[in-house]
Design a binder for these strands. Structure first.
Lengths: 269, 269
DNA sequence: GAGTAATTTGACAATTCGTCAAAATTGGCG
DNA sequence: CGCCAATTTTGACGAATTGTCAAATTACTC
């Protein structure tokens, strides 16, 4: 149960496995319903414009009821963020299945990140908002942990690709460093490059002014530069890369749309 | 004048250049005083915890007076951010003077960014907060423009280093791309890598969990990988690089402290 | 020092938050 | 079916904050 119950929402299942009453079922699903109500509001009006009252109105109840499930607005946001990270992870995992060799798998994750920003922009936005002090400080320990675990799974996805590249010889670990160090450096490098690039693209007014008109092209090229530098085979081949990207992009977009439509699932702690 | 006057704060200088009265001087400086009062409050309690009332109390006036200068809290934040970006730019410009060759200059800016985060963490934090929808949307066009111009100057600083590297032959432009494209790609790449890396370091709880224990080392190494890949001379030499970094870091830190102490200057539109 | 212009003030209306006692609903059981 | 006890929902309340504006205050000129 993700709920931070103020009262006692769950009934003691006294006397063995009792079936849930309709009311109990409704309550169990309410966490999800709250998130479903909050998400489009945040999308349309921005977080600060969304009040507990407006969320309550959107789902035909009063604020009090919502407070039975989440202790404040920030906690709702964190739950939304966890859901968003899960969607991203799902996209990443799907991306990995689209590669023929290890480096293609790696490239696919990068493209998946782009698709995530394009097709699920509100999720991306929510993830970003979450990364901020004022939000962070108000949230509960438990919910922070849930979010961290979701993020960890995303990282594991990339780490896995790199590790398997090392296992099958596409990537050779220099003697001067340990495998673990190398994996961490690559993960962190690609993550910084893609995340930083996409954030800058979406939030920096100076980008256009500086003449940086095709940030996506730059991100891709820079990632490949990073991977070439450490000698990850097969090395970057512009035309092959372009062809590959073109072939997987529509698949990733389709998958993203499908993830978006899928009935949202409550994040459980 | 940065002030967005609700009333008519400036008196018509009727009849040629009249000397300002004490009161007019006080008003002219008040923008700065407001920022000086707001900054430590934001630092200590976080943005959301700072109210107009608390800022007013900190500088012995009432909210009404502050509203004569800034139309809301977000506008104050944007002005604070512009000041922060200026400090960063100043550090970057100083960094450029510490390099013997073009690549050292480039490295120096990267280290300057690290020092900025370490020595002026509140400025970094404010810059980050600013990058967010809820804040952004409430601010005035004019103040957004001021901020964008400040950022542009930071970018120009890096672009300048790259351009001069091309001019003196340290960096050769491949035939397949224009010089401008290359410069933009490098600026954007380094910016993403450093900014993204530092943001992740400071806001991502998953970093430690993923075993990424030395993000700074990774950032530096990855930047050099990027520059090596495009063949910027002289190529990366670990020991020389380390030695250079060690030599400039204390200077940059000293400069940062000095910038921090310097009497803050109001950002004028 | 008086008069005028400009600035500061603080009370006001409007929001929003989180709480909690009272009201309403639910489900078990005769 | 209908009553009772347990549980959930409600909405009124107090506190905090925002932005406004007419009235009070202050500053400047002559």
């Amino acid at each position: 149960m993700a709920e931070s119950t103020t009262h006692h929402l769950t009934r003691e299942n006294s006397g063995g496995g009792r079936v849930l009453t309709p009311k109990q079922l409704e309550i169990r699903n309410r966490g999800t319903r709250i998130l479903d109500a909050a998400f489009p509001l945040v999308r349309e009006h921005g977080l600060s414009a969304v009040s507990m009252e407006s969320i309550a109105r959107a789902m035909d109840c009063t604020r009090g009821t919502i407070y039975n499930h989440f202790s404040n607005k920030e906690d709702i946001l964190l739950a939304l963020a966890a859901r968003s990270v899960r969607r991203r992870m799902e996209l990443f995992r799907y991306a990995v299945t689209l590669g023929q060799d290890s480096r293609q798998c790696c490239a696919a994750i990068g493209i998946a990140a782009e698709v995530y920003v394009d097709c699920l922009p509100d999720d991306f936005s929510i993830e970003q908002i979450t990364r901020h002090d004022p939000v962070w400080q108000k949230t509960s320990q438990a919910r922070r942990k849930v979010l961290a675990e979701c993020e960890q799974q995303c990282i594991d996805c990339i780490s896995g690709v790199i590790s398997s590249a090392i296992r099958n010889g596409d990537l050779v670990v220099a003697k001067s460093v340990t495998q673990e160090t190398l994996v961490q450096r690559i993960v962190f490098g690609l993550w910084s490059l893609v995340y930083g690039g996409l954030v800058l693209e979406s939030t920096s007014p100076s980008l256009g002014m500086a003449g940086i008109s095709q940030p996506r092209v730059a991100i891709r090229r820079n990632c490949n530069a990073l991977l070439d530098d450490i000698g990850w085979r097969p090395l970057f081949d512009p035309s092959a890369y372009q062809k590959y990207v073109s072939s997987i992009t529509p698949k990733l977009r389709r998958q993203a749309k499908s993830i978006q439509k899928r009935t949202s699932q409550e994040v459980s702690a």
